[in-house]
Structures are given as structure tokens and as C-alpha cells.
Simulated scan of single mutants.
Amino acid sequence: MNLYCIPYAGCSARVYDSWQQHLPDHVTVVPLELPGRGSRCVEEPIDELAALLADLYQQLDPGSPYALFGHSYGAVIAFELAKLLRAKGDPEPSALLLSASRAPRLLGADADTHRLSDAELTERLAELGGTPQELLENEELMEIYLPVIRADYRILGEYGTGTPGRVGCPVVAFYGDADDEADLASVEEWAHYTDGSFGVRKIHGDHFFLHAAESELVAAVEAVCTKGESS
């Protein structure tokens, strides 16, 4: 099975490089790099959802067994990618794994983030805690980084707060027990966005448990991928 992984806003897919060592050989981690970061850092970031989905779709092989994983912003993109696959008549993922993300209708808090000034956006990133302090304090690097994070937040800001369709595959949502951004109640709302089964998994940590509780999270992901534990 291929496990396609989408990173959170502003982050490179290299955040998933260490996952393979925690997983059995029959699960292959395939990080999906977005333009403007990591191995694609020379490309312009994409700030329009349809264009980003078209880009990511080209990186998939839906003809082979696969699952989709996304963290925070990446969870929203993973959901939309699964919707696109369904609309195209492609095989849907065996599981859609959504991590640290409020359900779409609850995303209004991020609506204006992409409109903040550089200073205000930097302050917001510092409050969230997912950006290394050394990056936030490096003006030259921030000149490169801010357009990337701003593109991601523009997609979130223009995403809307309705119920934008459903997927047909099983959905499993992960939440951090100390996460103020996406608590249990907001994560449980994802149940309304699938025609398949739905399950919730608690992970110890705050919004960035992807880092602090990596082994716990990957073990939970493996259970879903290999044992079908979605309920």
C-alpha cells in the first residue's frame, strides 16, 4: 500500500521522511511535496485550490492500493484530493486519514490570515508554535518562507465554511489531547463528510503532535492501513 502524505501549511513533505522506519515494508510512505518547498523550492507556490489539486493528482497512482494522510492544512487538501478522485471515477483511498484538523465548516478562524502583514503573519506563526524560532528570526529566510505560508493560508481563507461535498471512503480523524486548534468536538464533525465509516483516534500532544508523538501517531496510522481499524 502507498501512504500518500500531505504536510501542514508552509511545511515541506520531508517532515514524513522518518515515517518509513516505523512502518512495515508493505506500507510505502510517499510524501507529496507542494510547490515552493523542499525539493520543489524553486517553483512558485500555488495559492489556488483547483490548481494545487491538479498538481497533486499527477503525483498519485490510484490504480494501486493506497491511503491518504494529511496534517492540519494538509488534512483539508487530502480531503479535497479524495473528493477529486471520486469525481473522476478513480478508485478511492482505502482510508482517508485526517490529522489535527477541524472539519471544513469550522475553518472560519483562518479566513483572514493570508491578509496579515508580514510582521503580523510572523507573529501568528510564532503563536501557533510549528515554525522553528531560528527561521522566524532570520529575515532572509522569512522572505522566502512567507510567500509559501501565505499561499497556503489563502487557500484556507477562500475555502469556505459550508459542507463542500463528501467522500465515499472510510475516514479516520486524529486529534491531540492538548490541541486548542482542533479539539475532539471539532474533529468529530468530519463524520458528516463521508458516506463510509468514521473513527476518531486520540494522540498525546498539542497541534503539532505530528512531531512530538510521531511514533504513537505512525503506529495508529499503521493500524488503520493494515488492519482497517476505522471504527
Rank of each mutant, 00 (worst) to 15 (best):
P147L: 04
I46V: 15
T163D: 14
D118L: 01
Q59K: 11
E80F: 01
Q20G: 13
A219Q: 13
I149F: 01
A212P: 00
T131S: 12
T122L: 10
V171S: 07
V42M: 06
P91E: 13
P65F: 05
S215D: 14
L121K: 06
K88L: 14
T122S: 12
G89F: 12
F79A: 05
A151Q: 07
A219V: 04
Q58Y: 00
S186F: 05
N138L: 04
V30E: 10
A219C: 08
L106V: 01
S186D: 13
P35I: 13
R154N: 09
D179C: 02
H192F: 14
L128Q: 04
A173E: 03
G228V: 04
L125W: 00
T122V: 06
I155Y: 11
G74Y: 02
H207N: 07
E140N: 05
L156G: 04
D118Q: 08
Y57F: 11
L107P: 05
V27Q: 14
G196P: 11
R37C: 09
L3W: 06
E222T: 11
Y145I: 06
S12V: 03
V200S: 12
E229I: 09
E92V: 12
A213N: 14
A119V: 12
A173S: 12
A220G: 10
Q58N: 13
D183C: 02
L32T: 03
V187P: 05
L49G: 14
R124V: 00
V30D: 00
G162S: 04
N2A: 05
I6A: 03
E92M: 10
W19P: 13
L107I: 12
R40W: 02
Y145N: 08
H204R: 14
A213L: 10
R150I: 09
V187Y: 01
G162D: 11
L121Q: 01
L107C: 10
T226Y: 02
H26N: 14
R105L: 02
D25W: 00
G70H: 04
V172E: 10
F208Q: 07
G63I: 00
V221R: 01
G176M: 06
H71K: 01
G199S: 07
A213R: 11
V29F: 14
H211M: 07
D61M: 01
S18F: 00
V29T: 11
D17S: 15
P24A: 11
C225Y: 01
S101N: 14
A100W: 00
L146M: 09
H207Q: 08
D110K: 03
L107F: 02
S197P: 10
